[in-house]
């Protein structure tokens, strides 16, 4: 019996979100009194794998089948489901991220398992198995009871946190026995922006809206983000106007993010925008309109013109970084 957790790596490295995921899987495994087994696909150095022990992984299964070089949803699902079956998994845990969304549903069908995505807490009960998850983009929470023998969960990022626990870890190779003729996702081109902070991973985010007045005013915003080491985002009207790329749009129909800090500059906070950022730990709103709904959702607020306030924030951030 086990809890299986898929720990994705990026160029052979794990991220904080991987550790959060292992912490979460380990917490469930402890309740169930079973092992926590991480699955790692591709080449990851041993010292990286060993770190997973700090968060409660008892075992890592390394899967290196060549069919998995490109993300083929079906192939990944086959490998993970096979490992889950071989280890008699009761619960399979994914991150609710790009890969999790792509693979987890297929794994659920292979295991005839009920699935809950975007889970925000440890199970409320284990028998029956009930989890809590965001619904209506965080406007409400739902309690979902999963009735199948095996359960597939994906964890909303930054909702559980990293919990250290020292266990001893073994590393094993696992052959997923894939039939390469069945998997044919062909990768033609890959475009990545290097050096830029990935929005969905960013712990700090600085975001601009229509109150910025013009695309020419983004300089200080980017400067503030650079000083803080934050990602940059924007509201929908700004993306629709072409002031900023669509990849920066956060909100109901854009990206949903949950950073530790979200600074909203000149964004009124329409319900659709809040839906994408309301899970942020700390929210700052800067707006000229005292009635802007964002002030209801924010922890800190500044009333005034963003273009006048931004330089002050940049200056203060510079001073802060110089002293820390």
């Amino acid at each position: 019996m086990s809890v299986i957790v898929y720990t994705e790596n990026w160029d052979g490295k794990f991220k904080k979100s991987s550790y959060e995921l292992v912490s979460y899987a380990h917490a469930i495994a402890s309740e169930l009194g079973v092992e926590t087994i991480a699955i790692s696909i591709g080449q990851v150095p041993e010292d990286q794998l060993n770190v997973l022990a700090n968060y409660g992984a008892n075992k890592v299964l390394c899967v290196k089948n060549p069919e998995l070089a490109v993300l083929d949803n079906a192939a990944y699902a086959s490998a993970i489901a096979r490992a889950a079956k071989a280890n008699n998994a009761q619960v399979v845990v994914f991150a609710n991220n790009f890969t999790g969304k792509a693979v987890a549903p297929r794994v659920a069908v292979k295991l005839e398992a009920g699935m809950a995505n975007s889970v925000t807490t440890l199970p409320l009960s284990f028998s029956p198995f009930v989890v809590q998850k965001n619904i209506f983009n965080g406007k409400a929470q739902g309690k979902l009871q999963i009735n199948s023998d095996i359960k597939v969960l994906s964890l909303a990022q930054n909702s559980f946190g990293i919990k250290e626990s020292n266990v001893s870890l073994t590393i094993e190779n696992f052959d997923a026995q894939l039939d390469s003729s069945k998997f044919n996702t062909e990768l033609i081109e890959k475009n990545t922006v290097s050096g830029k902070i990935i929005l969905t991973d960013a712990e700090l985010v600085v975001s601009g809206g229509r109150g910025m007045k013009s695309p020419d005013n983004w300089g200080p915003l980017e400067e503030l983000a650079a000083i803080l080491g934050a990602g940059t985002a924007c509201s929908r009207p700004v993306a629709d106007e072409g002031w900023r790329p669509h990849s920066e749009h956060v909100g109901q129909t854009g990206k949903v993010i949950a950073p530790n800090l979200y600074i909203a500059l000149g964004i009124s906070g329409a319900i659709q925008h809040l839906a994408g950022v309301s899970s942020s730990k700390v929210i700052v709103a800067v707006n000229t309109d005292p009635e802007a709904p964002f002030f209801e959702a924010a922890d800190y607020g500044i009333l005034g013109d963003v273009n006048k306030i931004l330089p002050k924030l940049v200056e203060a951030a510079k001073a802060f970084k110089a002293h820390s």
């Binding site: 699935m115 929470q141 739902g142 009871q145 922890d299 800190y300």
Partner: peptide
Amino acid sequence: KSTYIGFAMPKAKAKVK
């Protein structure tokens, strides 16, 4: 394979500073 058994509203946020 699963069913919703209850719902809750998110906790009210503290007032903005």
